[in-house]
Every structure is written in C-alpha cells, then in structure tokens.
Design a protein around this nucleic acid. Structure first.
Lengths: 243, 243
DNA sequence: AATAAATATGTACTTATTACACATTAATTT
DNA sequence: AAATTAATGTGTAATAAGTACATATTTATT
C-alpha cells in the first residue's frame, strides 16, 4: 500500500467515500480440516443454520480479531473445533467476491489443515462438526465448495512434492496404509512395487522394526517419518528455497 | 464462517468486543508487477513517503473498496499504475501480521502480474513507479521484501509447470530470448540444445517463419506462443483439473 | 576476404518411469 | 493339523526423460 492510499484514507471523511466504508469489510478465516479414515479423505463440516443455506453444510471459520495474526486466527479456530494445536496448517487462497456472503461484505482467508483422526487428543464432541467424505460432497453453503476444491487441489500439488501426507497418518504406519492414502488423495491406483521404489528413493522413512497388529492378514512392517521431514507447514522457510 | 460467528457479531454491541472492532481492520491489495528487460527480471516500485520507511521503496497497492472484488481491486491498481488492463495476474498469498503496517491493522492480499515492458500501451509516466532489477533489491518498506520473495518463489514454481513466462515477452521472440528469460527467472544456466529439445516437446510454440532484425549477430528464427496456451491466470479453471 | 559471434542441430550416456510375476508369511477356515 | 486365503515383499526388462557434449552454418563486423 502506498502513502497516497493512506492520505486518501486520512482525508476520507471530507470526501465521498467515508473513512468507515474502507473498514466496512469483514474478514474471516475458514478452515478445511482434513482427516483420513477407512480409505477415505474426510473434512469437518457443520450444518449451516443460516436461512439462505438451510440444510447445507459449511466449513468452520470465524472473524479475525483485530489483535490477532492470520495464522493465530486459524489456529484458534482449529483448537476450538478439534482440541488440537500442534497441527499442519497452510494458507491456500483468499476469497473475496462481493456477494459471497449474504449478510454483507466478508473476505475470507482459507487454510487447510491435516490431522490424524486417530490422535487421542482429538475431541470431536466440542461442537457440531462432523467428518464427511470429501468425494460425497456436492454442494456447500456460501462459496465453501469452491474453497474446499481449491484446498484439495493445493493438497494434491503439495503431496507430489513434499512429505505432508504423513500428518494424516498415525505416527507408525505400514507401506500399504501410506499407498492407500496417496491413492485416496490423488484418485488413482498405484503399482505396489513402483510405489515402494519411489518412496524408498525419497529416503523419508525410518524402519522401526515393528509389525502391524490386529490385521486380518499377514502383517506388514511399520515405518515412521524421519524427524527432519516433519512439517507443520510447507511454507516455513520456503521463500528462502531459491535465495 | 459459521452462523455462530455471525450471531456473535450481531450481538457484539452488548459484549466486550464491539461490532466496530471486527471491522476495524483495513484490507488492501499489493501488486508485484514484473517485467523483463536487458536479461533481468524487474519489478515496479515507488519510493515510500512514510516517515518510518523514508528512503525505502515499496510495492504499489491500495485499499479494496467495499463494492469491489479482490481481483477487480488488483486490476484497478494495475490499470492506474501501468495503463494496462489485459495482463496476467495471479493471487499469491495474504499477509496479515499485526504489526506489518505502522499506521494500524492492515491485511494485504498479494498479487503478481507479468507484463511485457515493450508493450506500446504501457505508460510508466502515470506515477512515480520505476523498474528495479529484482536481484538488486535488498530491503523494502513494510513486509514488502517478504511479499516480493514469496511472489518470486511462486513464479519459479509456475514457470516450471505452465507457459506463463510468455506474458513477459513480446508477441514474437527468438529461442535465445526465451532461454535467457528462463535463466533470469530460475537463476541457472541452461544448455541450449537441451533447452530447445524440452521446449519443442511441450509443443507450445508456433514457427512463424520470420527472423530477428537488428541484432549484431546471425539472426534467429522468431516464434509465437500458440493461442490455446495464452493465459491471463493459471487459476482459471484450475480447480477442476482433478475433478 | 577474413574473422567473430551467434544459430542450428544429433548422439551417447545416465537416470527415472512403467509394466509386470512369483515366492513368502500369517491369519482363517475346514 | 492341514489346507486355504489374502496380503506382504521383492527384481528385471523395456521405455521415456534428462544430461553432457561438438561441429557445421549463417550473418554481421572488421
């Protein structure tokens, strides 16, 4: 923003556009909270109780407080809705069409978060949020279907380049579980041998010399993500990548 | 955003957080306007006239008007600053740290734009913006260095996957010019033969059977980008890519 | 006419991707 | 206890993509 714009603002009360008008835009964060269960990618949704969208679900979100960073606002929403605070979270895009919200001008910054549904700290009873398989979602309140699709698109990009997918799995997992998760996110079938070769080349995994338990077939080996690849955000330091 | 948040807002005047507080956040767009000239990537900057940042340059930007879409706001800034309106423009990220702006709480949505410096419609005399080679920029006002770096990082990603780079070139260009542009953006040297092979495989270019003029060496052939690859935004339809 | 500087082009080598089959192990069934 | 089932675990050949590298050609300049 230029000084010119600020001057405009400071003297705005004497002009047509009033000072207040510039601040008459609400700004929120919306969170696409993703989990993985029963070979499906799922998202937390709440039933919209706005008349305009009765019967439709919407994404959890809230206004950004004037004394709160963007990331702090989305972490707060996450903590309120899931009880979790040490989670992967990434900004995706800001949505600001004039008529996107029936109650007035509201611009929203969309984040997506990846959590382990089996995390024992996860509390789903804090509110009226429930898991919904993303593939079954046809329509959402507001522009939330667009927001969801944009986040899923970004997730698919990230997954091909960075080890972010592990945030959706328990600490220990088998190669089969990992492959099924890739397949669920990318919507493709992968060849087991080629998949294992590719993962092996990445050198992300630690063989912890344990086996699966309670599976109705021959148990597979368990692995963990090496510590140096654990990420709570891809963006951390990312702008320095080419510096 | 949930209905609960709206309820909170509607009844806010009876509570500690006043209704006005929620709207007491300014929201702007900032534009990283990029061009290419003399084998260098350049960005349009204006000298900051804020006391806090005297002597430093900053990115062009402005407040979003209450009746204006996000994209409309950034197109408006672009049109005001360059006279151009048919340009490549893409949202990159929203920056909202509490103290990023000395005059108050201002959240900004960053866009980057790619323009052809030799476009005859370009008017650089509309304002006090000037081109600065991005590699020589060490410090900017506000958090604008971070915004610039984030946009450049995104540009480098896009360039590897999509034919966006052509927005920085005149309609007709030689393979040498194209290669030098890739080298400037990616900060690497490329092998001429391998580069040409890769470009040829992409099948982006139309051989228009013309040669360079006024070059102090053997002229090369000129090419154009095929029409179907002309993009004013990578995001157009992108969310449907995996649908 | 000679020189300089850039264009234009192809091949061998290495690395990555894809397609594909069989022996092994543990749980389950008979 | 033996047979069956269902998944794990592994390797190789074929193809495609990426990398390294040199020479003849064309135009402008000297």
């Amino acid at each position: 923003m230029t000084e010119k714009a600020l001057q405009q603002l400071k003297t705005a009360e004497t002009e047509k556009i009033s000072h207040l008008d510039y601040f008459n835009i609400g700004i929120t964060v919306d969170c696409v909270i993703l989990g993985y269960e029963e070979k499906e990618l799922k998202v937390q949704l709440i039933k919209s109780d706005m008349q305009e969208y009765s019967g439709l679900y919407s994404l959890p979100g809230d206004f950004i407080r004037p004394d709160e960073d963007l990331e702090a606002a989305s972490y707060r929403v996450l903590k309120e809705k899931t009880g979790l605070d040490d989670v992967y979270l990434e900004q995706v895009r800001t949505f600001g069409n004039i008529f996107r919200h029936p109650s007035g001008r509201v611009i929203t910054v969309a984040y997506y978060s990846l959590i382990d549904i089996k995390n024992h700290k996860l509390q789903t009873d804090l509110n009226e949020l429930h898991w919904h398989p993303v593939n079954e979602i046809k329509k959402l309140a507001f522009d939330h279907k667009l927001i969801l699709d944009t986040c899923l698109h970004r997730l698919r990009q990230q997954v091909m380049e960075h080890p972010v997918i592990f945030n959706l799995l328990p600490e220990k997992f088998s190669l089969r579980e990992l492959q099924e998760l890739y397949e669920a996110i990318l919507g493709v079938e992968l060849d087991r041998r080629n998949f294992r070769k590719k993962i092996s080349i990445k050198d992300w995994l630690l063989d912890i010399d344990e086996m699966e338990h309670n599976v109705p077939h021959r148990p597979g080996k368990l692995y963990m993500l090496k510590k140096q690849f654990r990420n709570k955000s891809v963006k951390t330091g990312a702008v320095l990548q080419f510096a």
